[in-house]
């Protein structure tokens, strides 16, 4: 990222947060029923940022596959569900969670190989929309297959992540600021995952090949990069990312069918951050998470509440008006 862009982000973000906070404090001074305090605002903001990391975990899987094949993988949500169901199923069979994690990661690699052989290989040179339709098929297959094997009951996934509330800055703020320890752990896991992915893509041979495929399929093929192998690798990595997302979301809400729907929460993140950027998925997740929480808490009551879902999409659409490729997406220039 250029230094100029970085400096804009470093100065712009605190300024934007401060401006929003001052706008709310002004509203509170004009309308006594409008509740606002700076510690509360920062508490909501931090909760939103941590929630945003959870969205980013799901969005990362989409980005990986889109980068390598320009296909929006509709099945990413069901991959999250399938991975979580498999891991819980293995734990219930008596495996320690670390072993269950490794075995499930292996299952996701096998799944990637199967998808490449059965679904993607016959689709080479087909229009993207056909590939997209194929991923819809994968979604329904995985959704039903997972429940057929492991059942549709809600399953508990507890790998010992603490869930107790933590109060920080108790000396600075009266009553302290509430932070959910589970969300904090999820954020750390998300950061570690991003770091691993960054190293993988930047410094490994396969990572460089994948970036080449992402830039131009035909050019990559012409210099001998095996597209089929790259697809297997990228779907495997997306499957493991789905597993991590499944552990975090499943640990939070229980492992059940609804997990497949969290893909919907990743969509505004992708629109905002750009479909081809890993940093975009992270920053997009943070903006969407923080934006929707702040909007729900401070503006929701003014319009009847439950605005966070559509607010996230609205925020993403506003960005699209000014940057159609998203904040970090690649600008596509085509001659006509």
């Amino acid at each position: 990222m250029p230094v100029r862009t970085l400096s804009i982000w470093i100065t712009g973000v605190p300024l934007a947060i401060g401006a929003i906070g001052f706008a709310f404090s002004l509203m509170a001074s004009l309308n006594p029923s409008f509740f606002f305090t700076w510690p509360y605002f920062l508490e909501v903001l931090s909760a939103g940022l941590l929630q945003g990391v959870m969205y980013s975990l799901v969005a990362l899987g989409f980005v990986l596959i889109f980068k390598a094949s320009s296909v929006f993988n509709f099945a990413q949500g069901s991959m999250v569900l399938f991975a979580a169901l498999t891991m819980v199923g293995l734990i219930e069979m008596g495996l320690h969670w670390t072993l269950a994690f490794v075995v499930t990661a292996g299952v996701m690699v096998l799944l990637a190989i199967a998808i490449e052989r059965i679904v993607l290989r016959p689709m080479v040179n087909q229009p993207h929309i056909i590939m997209f339709m194929a991923t819809i098929g994968i979604f329904y297959f995985l959704d039903g297959f997972g429940q057929t094997i492991w059942g549709s009951n809600v399953k508990i996934l507890d790998i010992g992540i603490p869930k107790d509330p933590i109060f920080v800055l108790t000396g600075l703020v009266e009553g302290g600021m509430l932070v959910n320890s589970f969300d904090l752990v999820a954020a750390i896991v998300g950061a570690i995952l991003v770091a691993i992915l960054a190293v993988f893509f930047q410094y490994t041979r396969i990572g460089r090949a994948l970036r080449a495929v992402a830039d131009d399929h035909q050019a990559a093929l012409s210099v001998g990069i095996p597209l089929k192998t790259i697809w297997v690798v990228v779907w495997s990595v997306a499957g493991i990312v789905a597993l991590v997302a499944g552990i975090m979301w499943g640990g939070k809400a229980g492992v059940q069918f609804t997990l497949a729907l969290i893909a919907l929460k990743a969509l505004p993140v992708l629109i905002l951050g750009g479909f081809t950027s890993i940093p975009g998925a992270i920053v997009g997740g943070l903006i969407i998470g923080a934006g929707e929480q702040v909007a729900e808490v401070f503006l929701g009551s003014l319009v009847g509440g439950a605005i966070q879902d559509w607010f996230a999409y609205m925020l993403a659409l506003v960005v699209l008006l000014f940057r159609p490729q998203g904040l970090f997406g690649e600008k596509i220039i085509e001659r006509v």
Binding site: Q51, L261, I262, E292, Q293, V297, S301, G305
Partner: peptide, 22 residues
């Protein structure tokens, strides 16, 4: 006081921050 939760209800952090902290 009323707090609607959008379907399916996987995300309620904002709701409970308002309830528990405000």
């Amino acid at each position: 006081s009323k707090f609607p939760v959008a379907h399916p209800g996987l995300e309620q952090k904002a709701t409970w921050l308002q309830i528990g902290r405000q």
